Measured scan of single mutants.
Amino acid sequence: VGDQVLEIVPSNEEQIKNLLQLEAQEHLQLDFWKSPTTPGETAHVRVPFVNVQAVKVFLESQGIAYSIMIED
């Protein structure tokens, strides 16, 4: 199991704000291929294997929908 690319769908401005804060966490080494800008629009982010669980827990705790787009 390696890195994953998640497709994330924020449903409101609050969730977009939370994702932008997540993007700013440099220690997570997230690679946003497509940043969140509009509710209902997908964002794509590559998550290093060591941080996959932490990111998924965060998304679930914020009620942000996501799916695994690419499993490496």
Results as ranks from 00 to 15, higher is better:
residue 1 V to E: 12
residue 1 V to M: 13
residue 2 G to C: 07
residue 2 G to L: 09
residue 2 G to K: 10
residue 2 G to E: 08
residue 2 G to M: 08
residue 3 D to A: 14
residue 3 D to V: 12
residue 4 Q to L: 13
residue 4 Q to A: 13
residue 4 Q to T: 14
residue 4 Q to I: 13
residue 5 V to R: 05
residue 5 V to W: 13
residue 5 V to E: 05
residue 5 V to K: 06
residue 5 V to I: 11
residue 6 L to M: 09
residue 6 L to R: 00
residue 6 L to I: 08
residue 7 E to T: 10
residue 7 E to K: 09
residue 7 E to W: 11
residue 8 I to M: 05
residue 8 I to P: 00
residue 8 I to H: 00
residue 9 V to M: 14
residue 9 V to D: 03
residue 9 V to S: 09
residue 9 V to L: 11
residue 9 V to Q: 08
residue 10 P to L: 06
residue 10 P to A: 08
residue 10 P to Y: 03
residue 11 S to K: 15
residue 11 S to T: 10
residue 12 N to M: 03
residue 12 N to F: 02
residue 13 E to W: 15
residue 13 E to D: 10
residue 14 E to M: 09
residue 14 E to Q: 10
residue 14 E to T: 10
residue 14 E to V: 06
residue 14 E to R: 06
residue 15 Q to R: 00
residue 15 Q to M: 04
residue 15 Q to F: 02
residue 15 Q to L: 01
residue 15 Q to V: 03
residue 15 Q to E: 07
residue 16 I to R: 04
residue 16 I to S: 02
residue 16 I to W: 06
residue 17 K to S: 09
residue 18 N to V: 15
residue 18 N to K: 14
residue 18 N to D: 12
residue 18 N to C: 08
residue 18 N to P: 02
residue 18 N to W: 15
residue 19 L to R: 00
residue 19 L to W: 01
residue 19 L to M: 04
residue 19 L to T: 02
residue 19 L to H: 00
residue 20 L to S: 06
residue 20 L to I: 08
residue 20 L to G: 05
residue 20 L to H: 11
residue 20 L to F: 11
residue 20 L to W: 14
residue 20 L to A: 07
residue 21 Q to F: 15
residue 21 Q to G: 10
residue 22 L to D: 02
residue 22 L to E: 01
residue 22 L to N: 02
residue 22 L to G: 03
residue 22 L to F: 09
residue 22 L to Q: 03
residue 22 L to K: 03
residue 22 L to I: 05
residue 23 E to V: 13
residue 23 E to P: 05
residue 23 E to F: 10
residue 23 E to W: 12
residue 24 A to L: 12
residue 24 A to I: 10
residue 24 A to M: 09
residue 24 A to D: 08
residue 24 A to W: 14
residue 25 Q to P: 02
residue 25 Q to V: 11
residue 25 Q to Y: 10
residue 26 E to W: 08
residue 26 E to F: 06
residue 26 E to N: 14
residue 27 H to S: 14
residue 27 H to E: 12
residue 27 H to A: 08
residue 27 H to K: 07
residue 27 H to L: 05
residue 28 L to I: 06
residue 28 L to R: 02
residue 28 L to C: 05
residue 29 Q to S: 09
residue 29 Q to V: 06
residue 29 Q to W: 06
residue 29 Q to K: 10
residue 30 L to H: 01
residue 30 L to Y: 02
residue 30 L to W: 03
residue 30 L to E: 01
residue 30 L to F: 04
residue 31 D to V: 13
residue 31 D to T: 09
residue 31 D to W: 07
residue 32 F to I: 04
residue 32 F to D: 02
residue 32 F to Q: 02
residue 33 W to A: 07
residue 33 W to V: 14
residue 33 W to S: 09
residue 33 W to N: 06
residue 34 K to P: 06
residue 35 S to H: 15
residue 35 S to C: 08
residue 36 P to W: 03
residue 36 P to Q: 02
residue 36 P to R: 00
residue 36 P to M: 03
residue 36 P to H: 02
residue 37 T to V: 06
residue 37 T to C: 04
residue 38 T to A: 12
residue 38 T to S: 11
residue 38 T to K: 12
residue 39 P to T: 04
residue 39 P to M: 06
residue 39 P to K: 04
residue 39 P to S: 05
residue 40 G to F: 09
residue 40 G to A: 03
residue 40 G to N: 08
residue 40 G to S: 03
residue 40 G to L: 06
residue 40 G to P: 02
residue 41 E to P: 03
residue 41 E to N: 07
residue 41 E to D: 09
residue 41 E to F: 06
residue 42 T to Y: 08
residue 42 T to C: 05
residue 42 T to F: 06
residue 42 T to D: 03
residue 42 T to M: 09
residue 43 A to E: 01
residue 43 A to F: 15
residue 44 H to S: 07
residue 44 H to C: 08
residue 44 H to T: 15
residue 44 H to A: 08
residue 44 H to G: 04
residue 44 H to Y: 15
residue 45 V to P: 00
residue 45 V to Y: 02
residue 45 V to D: 00
residue 45 V to K: 00
residue 46 R to V: 07
residue 46 R to T: 06
residue 46 R to G: 03
residue 46 R to S: 08
residue 46 R to H: 10
residue 47 V to Q: 00
residue 47 V to Y: 00
residue 47 V to F: 01
residue 48 P to C: 03
residue 49 F to C: 07
residue 49 F to I: 09
residue 49 F to P: 04
residue 49 F to R: 06
residue 49 F to T: 08
residue 50 V to M: 11
residue 50 V to E: 13
residue 50 V to S: 11
residue 50 V to K: 11
residue 51 N to P: 00
residue 51 N to S: 15
residue 51 N to Q: 12
residue 51 N to I: 06
residue 52 V to I: 13
residue 52 V to A: 07
residue 52 V to D: 02
residue 52 V to W: 10
residue 53 Q to M: 12
residue 53 Q to P: 09
residue 53 Q to A: 11
residue 53 Q to W: 11
residue 54 A to Q: 10
residue 54 A to F: 14
residue 54 A to D: 07
residue 55 V to S: 00
residue 55 V to R: 00
residue 55 V to T: 03
residue 55 V to K: 00
residue 55 V to M: 08
residue 55 V to W: 01
residue 56 K to F: 06
residue 56 K to D: 01
residue 56 K to Y: 09
residue 56 K to V: 10
residue 56 K to G: 03
residue 56 K to E: 04
residue 56 K to N: 03
residue 57 V to K: 12
residue 57 V to G: 14
residue 57 V to L: 15
residue 57 V to I: 14
residue 58 F to V: 04
residue 58 F to E: 03
residue 58 F to N: 02
residue 58 F to G: 01
residue 58 F to R: 02
residue 59 L to Y: 01
residue 59 L to H: 00
residue 60 E to P: 00
residue 60 E to M: 06
residue 60 E to Y: 04
residue 60 E to T: 09
residue 61 S to E: 13
residue 61 S to L: 12
residue 61 S to F: 07
residue 61 S to Y: 06
residue 62 Q to E: 07
residue 62 Q to I: 09
residue 62 Q to P: 00
residue 62 Q to K: 15
residue 62 Q to L: 11
residue 63 G to W: 03
residue 63 G to K: 07
residue 63 G to P: 01
residue 63 G to I: 02
residue 63 G to V: 02
residue 64 I to D: 01
residue 64 I to R: 00
residue 64 I to V: 04
residue 65 A to L: 12
residue 65 A to G: 06
residue 65 A to I: 11
residue 66 Y to S: 01
residue 66 Y to H: 04
residue 66 Y to A: 01
residue 67 S to P: 01
residue 67 S to F: 11
residue 68 I to S: 05
residue 68 I to W: 05
residue 68 I to P: 04
residue 69 M to C: 06
residue 69 M to W: 11
residue 69 M to F: 09
residue 69 M to T: 05
residue 69 M to P: 04
residue 69 M to S: 06
residue 69 M to L: 11
residue 70 I to G: 13
residue 70 I to Q: 11
residue 71 E to G: 11
residue 71 E to Q: 15
residue 72 D to M: 14
residue 72 D to N: 09
residue 72 D to F: 15
